[in-house]
Nucleic acid binder design. Structure first.
Lengths: 158, 158
DNA sequence: CCTGGCCTTCACGTCAACGTCAAGGTCTAC
DNA sequence: GTAGACCTTGACGTTGACGTGAAGGCCAGG
């Protein structure tokens, strides 16, 4: 199949597939007229990449999975390198959840405060400014902090 | 005080402060030689911005807080616009936590699976590929998804 | 033969929140 | 008077994962 069909079937764009090739994650035979030619294995590979991106992996992190599949394994996570990435990601996600929950608590506290200020006569105690509170309550989480942004956009989700 | 001192006291850089001014979040008198001149209120303002960025707000979202402070309020979140941002952020954070927990569960499941495959004779059932699993378990969370990346770096944290 | 729809390779644009020069003015200390 | 530490504006660089043209080749249908 040609690049357009693969893109459509993977719910992405041709540009994206060329980009993956550029990054060494995907490769393609060429037909007589120089067009890229893909097969079902390539489709699986792209779906794997997209799925991993979708749960917050970055492109480089999908590489072990891709190589695992290309090495002939049935699943991209059958190789130790992939499992290692899983573990790293799990730690990251746990850290992120902790951080989010801290922030959530902070937001709720601030909202409670302004709310009770309105309920009472505009003069509930304001023990801390939001800035001071944030600084005190969230003491600079370590290095990587959170990530996991908008994820890959499928062709339909635009 | 001049820009360097304010930057140091806010744990950030002069470039950052000029950037905030460029974005209309900060303003400065000028002394006789054209240098920016800040006072304590400006320092508070910058600390507020930094604190909010630190908990995942983007710059635009800090604007209501800044304007609230500049309007003479004791705290940046005393104004309805700020509270609205709090509420939006809380919803975002909640959505993000949900998503993270879904991803966490997915990762744990995958890890359990490869682990038990190793424990048994390399042939535990593999009901789904990771890609298929991800697609099925995480059915395309709505629009904004997660964010809340590395947050602002204080001058010391580098 | 021509139109339209694929495909090809460059190569620059995007977004946020700044970092990092560069070229030059100002002020303080010695 | 000059070194050094500050300040000024301007403008380009960074990062990831692509988007968006431009200029042109290939091929099927009418």
């Amino acid at each position: 199949m040609r690049i357009g069909e693969l893109a459509e079937r993977a719910g992405t764009s041709t540009r994206t597939l060329r980009y993956y090739e550029e990054r060494g994650l995907l490769s393609a035979r060429r037909n007589s007229s120089g067009y890229r030619d893909y097969d079902e294995d390539d489709a699986r590979l792209v779906r794997e990449i997209r799925a991993l991106l979708g749960i917050g992996f970055d492109l480089e992190e999908t590489r072990p999975f891709v190589e695992c599949l290309r090495a002939g394994h049935d699943a991209g996570d059958e190789c130790p390198a992939s499992v290692a990435v899983y573990r790293r990601k799990l730690a990251e996600v746990d850290a992120c959840i902790d951080r989010m929950q801290g922030i959530r608590a902070h937001l709720v506290a601030q909202l409670d405060q302004t709310e009770s200020a309105h309920a009472a006569g505009e003069r509930a105690d304001r023990p801390t400014t939001p800035a001071a509170f944030a600084a005190a309550t969230l003491p600079d989480p370590p290095e990587p902090r959170c990530a996991l942004t908008t994820g890959p956009l499928t062709k339909e989700s635009r």
